[in-house]
């Protein structure tokens, strides 16, 4: 059975935020949109599993997460940006404001965080999910969300302050 029009419209409304999340995960705009496309296709294929009482964004973010992890498993070349490439990626992002230098460093630093820290940090700070929603999307316990966010924030700070974070295994290609 095909998805009803109203569901499709809800999905349409979720696209801008899905794109932002995907961009912050894989940085390359076209690869990020590929991820969004896979997410939308899966959401449409499973629309009947969507409970209207839930937030469509949280539901689609968890689909995006699964798709992202699947792709990483299938093709390790796809998503991770080498720290040396991070500068190019950062240059490709539109610049805003006067303190561009600061923000460039911020995204470059973000790209160096291990993916399991980057995900919860983005879901909570960028997508403003609660820890419980974040745990649901990532399918990890809330306690793990808490400790990963804590580690992510201090690692990000270490990177921005020019210190090597104690846990920046993300400097290697694949964690």
């Amino acid at each position: 059975m095909d998805a009803p029009t109203a569901f499709r419209q809800q999905l349409l409304g979720a696209i801008p935020r899905l794109r932002r999340y995907a961009r912050s995960l894989v940085f390359d705009p076209s690869a990020a949109d590929d991820l969004v496309q896979t997410t939308l296709e899966r959401a449409l294929a499973h629309w009947h599993q969507f409970d209207q009482q839930r937030d469509i964004l949280v539901w689609t973010l968890s689909i995006a997460h699964n798709a992202f992890m699947d792709e990483r498993r299938r093709d390790k070349r796809m998503t991770l940006v080498e720290p040396t490439e991070a500068r190019d990626v950062v240059d490709a992002l539109p610049a805003i404001g006067n303190d561009i230098g600061l923000r460039l460093d911020l995204v470059a630093a973000l790209s160096k965080l291990p993916i399991e820290q980057r995900q919860p940090l983005l879901l909570v700070t960028l997508e403003q999910l609660s820890y419980a929603e974040c745990a649901e999307v990532l399918r990890i316990p809330v306690g793990t969300v808490m400790s990963r966010i804590s580690r992510a924030r201090s690692a990000l700070r270490d990177l921005l302050d020019g210190r090597a974070p104690s846990n920046a295994r993300g400097l290697r290609r694949v964690v």
Binding site: L93, I96, G97, L102, L106, V107, L126, L156, L160
Partner: peptide, 17 residues
């Protein structure tokens, strides 16, 4: 840092889909 990340990545929301 959270504010900075939002400021930096929010521009994606305004892009045409």
């Amino acid at each position: 840092d959270a504010e900075g990340l939002r400021a930096r990545l929010d521009s994606v929301l305004a892009e045409p889909v």
